[in-house]
Nucleic acid binder design. Structure first.
Length: 590
RNA sequence: GCGCCCGUAGCUCAGUUGGAUAGAGCACCUGGCUUCGAACCAGGUGGUCGGAGGUUCGAGUCCUUCCGGGCGCGCCA
């Protein structure tokens, strides 16, 4: 409808140009938008105001000429000039009501589009280090990434959902060491657990599982293990520190590898990694988050050197202070970045570069990174690397997700990963349910900090927006059940034939909302803004509740009843389509 | 100090390429269930859109500058 009006305006503009009213070289953006105020009609265009200056005439005069040049259309009931020179379009009632037929015909397809057809896009999200369970901070990235992927899919893009598993770094070795040390403790060994080790309860669980699998086969002499290792950091009573926790843990890792040998070390390492990956996968699955690919960092370890070499050959690297630097300042970064350390090992950034190259080589037109806002410093260097490798940096897109702050009883819930006193995603889900969690995480713009009110998310009351929307769905289902109880039935064809009986203002509001859904969904996908969907669903539910309270559906008048029920079914369909996109359930009874 | 994000009603937030009288929810006040589900609805109170300049027919939206808040600035991952 909107595009047809824009085409008609374009034709009218061409007529004005050929009549000499408008200079031929003027090329304004022809835009038709929905109105906010129904008294302004259904659609409006500001074209006349844009043309006023180049045409040297008053906006309202230009508008008059444009309207005169518009072809007549059965879809449009009236076209009027309003305000400073807006052209307002009033859509005919039959066209307005026809949306019911479209919704019921298209069903779960209604609202989906093909704007992204033929384009491959990857959404990488969460990608938390597999060194412990996911916490609530990861939850927002999970919910947003999953929903954005759903939106893109609905817009016709070929979407791939990926989790990048950081299974190669030093942190993984520290986890393996932590698991092994807990394993040794369970065998009776006593020693001071390194301050830099992972201290969470889950490490004990993994160690216990390891012991039940291998028995005492992995036990080694601990006094020998700790001998010669730099002292761990300790804090004296006066606050002064001694020792070096970083060197302590690194040397312990080396000693452990030596004591166990490669095979046994790998056994411990994989045991820890596999256990945590399994935990994360299960957790995300229960959160209704699906992935197409769990991409292992180790699988591209061998590509890092190759990529560094490519950058070197292209002249983007230089040596200084014994290490190798990437000249990212040449691409707008505020400082250059090390890719090969003075000890010869490559940096984490070098792995990222290899990963970028790998992604783009897989042929994605667009690659989305769903990052926590604390990662914003990486954006410029990532794009710099992308460009240096000869790729278009615009193919990378970074969504910086602001933090979610939990509130319980009006108090901020403290979050500290370091001390291990964090709320896990699993705990959150068990406390408020997956529906509320998914909804709350995406209900705000991702650029905005999120106040996550646990009490509100749990409340089964009118304050809770999730229930509000689900209730609208359940209410419609309830009406359809009541229809059965009264021995009546719904005939869709009959309903579609009597749509002209929908004349109430509440019905007109719902028809407009239904017609808006495809436009909104497309915009939400292209701007990567799931909160537009939650906002829309709230409006649609409100429209339904208002309608429900002002009119009866199961009326004696058969034609009117059929028409109203077909409208209800259309509303229910769009509620389902919207809630499905954010993976919130659609209960028939609450 | 530099960089990114944010600042809209008492609170939490929407506001589509710049568009008409800036909107919701919560809170507060008033009213509505012998009726298809009151987990609902209708109405009301509440605003210098952080401040100041600028761009233009028109600015919450764009530009400049200042103020306030969050985050980031490792040969960590």
């Amino acid at each position: 409808m909107k595009t047809r009006l824009e085409e008609q305006l374009a034709d009218a503009l061409a007529t004005l140009k050929s009549d000499g009213l408008v200079p031929p070289d003027v090329a304004p953006a022809i835009a038709v938008t929905r109105t906010k105020d129904p008294t302004h009609g259904d659609f409006a265009s500001n074209l006349a105001m844009q043309l006023a200056k180049p045409a040297g005439r008053k906006p309202r005069d230009v508008a008059e000429a444009l309207i005169a040049a518009l072809p007549s259309s059965a879809e449009v009931r009236d076209v009027v000039i309003a305000g400073p020179g807006f052209i307002n379009f009033f859509v005919s009632d039959a066209t307005q009501a026809d949306v019911v037929r479209r919704v019921l015909d298209d069903g779960e397809q209604y609202g989906r589009s093909q704007v992204g057809a033929g384009k491959r896009v990857q959404v990488e999200f969460v990608s938390a280090n597999p060194t412990g369970p996911l916490h609530v901070g990861h939850g927002r990235g999970a919910a947003l990434g999953a929903t954005i992927a759903n939106l893109l899919d609905a817009a016709g893009f070929d979407v791939q959902r990926e989790y990048y598993v950081n299974d190669a770094g030093r942190q993984m070795s520290i986890l393996a060491l932590s698991v092994w040390l807990r394993y040794l403790e369970k065998g009776g060994a006593t020693f001071a657990f390194p301050s830099n080790g992972y201290r969470g309860e889950y490490v004990h669980d993994i160690a216990a599982a390891l012991r039940s699998e291998v028995g005492s086969d992995l036990e080694r002499d601990t006094t020998a293990l700790f001998s010669g290792v730099t002292d761990d950091e300790t804090v004296a009573a006066d606050g002064s520190t001694s020792g070096d926790k970083e060197a302590h843990v690194d040397e312990l890792i080396e000693a452990a590898q030596a004591a166990l040998g490669d095979n046994a070390w790998k056994l411990v390492f994989d045991h820890g990694l596999d256990a945590i990956i399994a935990d994360i996968r299960g957790d995300l699955a229960d959160f209704r988050v699906r992935y197409d690919e769990w991409f292992s960092e180790r699988s591209i370890e061998g590509d890092v050197a190759t990529v560094v070499e490519r950058l070197d050959k292209a002249g983007h690297l230089y040596k200084q202070d014994g290490s190798t630097w990437f000249r990212s300042t040449a691409f707008g970064d505020d400082k250059d970045r090390v890719v090969v350390r003075s000890d010869g090992r490559t940096t984490y950034f070098a792995s990222d570069i290899a990963y970028i190259d790998n992604k783009l080589a897989r042929g994605f037109d667009q690659v989305l990174y769903v990052f926590g806002a604390d990662h914003h410093g990486y954006v410029v260097r990532m794009q710099a690397a992308c460009e240096a490798l000869g790729h278009d940096p615009k193919r990378l897109e970074f969504l910086l997700i602001q933090f979610a702050i939990l509130y319980r009883g009006g108090e901020r819930v403290p979050m500290s990963t370091r001390s291990g006193s964090f709320v896990t995603l699993r705990e959150l889900r068990e406390e408020v349910g997956a529906d509320a969690a998914r909804w709350f995480y995406v209900m705000r713009r991702y650029q905005q900090h999120l106040d996550f009110d646990l009490d509100l998310a749990k409340s089964r009351s009118n304050e809770n927006p999730v229930y509000y929307v689900q209730y609208a769905h359940a209410r419609i289902c309830s009406v359809m059940r009541e229809l059965d109880n009264k021995g009546l039935s719904f005939d869709q064809a009959a309903g579609l034939a009597t749509l002209d009986r929908l004349v109430e203002p509440q019905e007109a509001d719902l028809l407009t909302l239904l017609a808006t859904w495809p436009e909104l969904l497309e915009r939400a996908a292209l701007t990567r803004e799931p909160h537009q969907v939650t906002g829309y669903l709230r409006d649609l539910a409100n429209g339904l509740h208002t309608y429900y309270n002002s009119h009866k559906f199961l009326v004696e008048d058969d034609a009117l009843r059929q028409a109203r029920l077909s409208l209800l079914c259309a509303v229910r369909q769009v509620l389902v389509n919207g809630l499905t996109l954010i993976d919130v359930s659609t209960p028939e009874v609450m």
